[in-house]
Design a protein around this nucleic acid. Structure first.
Lengths: 240, 240
DNA sequence: GTGCCGCGGATTGTTGACAATCATACGAGC
DNA sequence: GCTCGTATGATTGTCAACAATCCGCGGCAC
């Protein structure tokens, strides 16, 4: 239902490096590779059925995206995100999605509303089914659709990268249980604000939504002033 | 004078791929490789004195950054930016630098003011010397310092990528002569707004500054509503 | 007992060569 | 004259092997 650009795509599929990059990215997102784990090149290459050449290229892409951290002659490690990183991710997301929202309000609101409604339906279905990972997927999809509807390639690219990091946060610090109903309400308000063209309400709701997400992940400790740069303390229990 | 993070860098220098990526990036920024040119791997590898392996890794990074466009079995080409891209770059920059500015206003304003003043001094020196490329460098440095002072790693990373694309725009569509005095005034106002903690003035000036830059590059045609997505017409004279 | 030195194992970084693929130019057929 | 099929050339994509580097452990001198 949610295929974006299948309209007669050129026959040549993407390069091998891009494919394995997507694979690794998805594995990191889904928590298959916990933060801090070392990714051996030979093992990964063997498991994916490719050689080390394309795999290294894919790794470089992921390093550029900030998902991996490369130590020279030591290996590649999955970046572990601390509390400051969580705040930073949501701060950047707020900036990007805010700009996307303003852009939508100056553009085709009805089309955007339609796309957001569809994404919202996916969230509602997942919530009704009680499927937590599907709900997270749909949440991801809603925000991706929000900035995609803005029509800015660069905002979209930045948002995609940030959403991947968001999933990393969720996978790493798996919160107990996201209150599905509250989540749905917040997203519904976002869509309505887009529909009504209410800029102030959209921005306020977006910021509150992001702050809520940070609180949900970190516990209601440092969600307010968002002082970036502090490593800060142990919220409930984070592994080293 | 403007070195950012030279503070006792680890002895092991970066990987070869990162070095060649920086080289290519700089070459693209400075206009050495005009947009649309094909970058042959063997030629580049020979010229840089490295093999094709590390070079391909560097290329993947640059593709991920959006500076190169890879066509399968065709080659790597320098992305050529049209008018819509110019508007999009400045739109994204506005979003990022606005967020950075708000963050600074909630943080250490005096330190940020100091850094911005230093960057401004570099601009003034370049303007006084009549050195256009030094002025562009200093302009670049001012905005880089602005988001660096915010202390958000992700905003910083996004801004760096966008600034490189900005330089690409400037190099490709080399404008006649940027009015140095006006440029200085605008940046001075930005710094003063940071110093005074005036959020409204900072945002307004920033948006005006970006709109001015777009007008300067494209000619005063479509700077107002910034309708992204249109390829749009020939402002004065753009090469295909 | 403590600190230093050297060695073994493993991993990454790099290289060169092989194979697959595509664009271009030329000639045959209609 | 135009179009289609084919040969050629160059380029990218991929692979397996070589070399450099670093961590951990055992032994030795002090």
């Amino acid at each position: 239902m949610g295929l974006d650009l299948h309209d007669l795509e050129p026959v040549s599929r993407r390069s091998t490096a891009a494919i394995v990059a997507d694979r690794i990215r998805q594995a990191i997102m889904r928590g298959t590779f916990p933060p801090g784990t070392q990714l051996g090149e030979v093992e990964l290459a063997g498991r994916l059925g490719v050689s080390r050449g394309p795999l290294r290229e894919a790794m470089q892409r992921l390093v550029a995206e900030g998902l991996l951290r490369s130590e020279r002659h030591r290996g590649l490690f999955v970046r572990d995100l601390d509390a400051a990183d969580v705040r930073d991710v949501y701060l950047a997301r707020t900036a990007v999605e805010r700009a996307a929202g303003m852009l939508i309000l100056d553009g085709d609101r009805s089309a955007a509303t339609e796309r957001l409604t569809a994404a919202l339906a996916a969230m509602e279905a997942a919530a009704a089914a009680g499927d937590a990972v599907a709900l997270a997927d749909a949440d991801h999809g809603f925000h991706a659709e929000l900035v995609a509807a803005a029509g800015s390639p660069r905002l979209r690219r930045m948002a995609d990268a940030l959403l991947v990091e968001t999933r990393m946060c969720l996978a790493a610090l798996q919160q107990t249980a996201p209150p599905a109903e509250e989540l749905l309400v917040e997203h519904r308000v976002l869509r309505d604000a887009v529909h009504d063209g209410d800029a102030d309400r959209l921005v306020a709701t977006l910021e509150a939504h992001m702050a809520d997400a940070v609180d949900r992940i970190l516990g209601p400790a440092g969600g307010g002033p968002a002082g970036a740069g502090l490593p800060l303390g142990p919220p409930p229990a984070v592994p080293a």
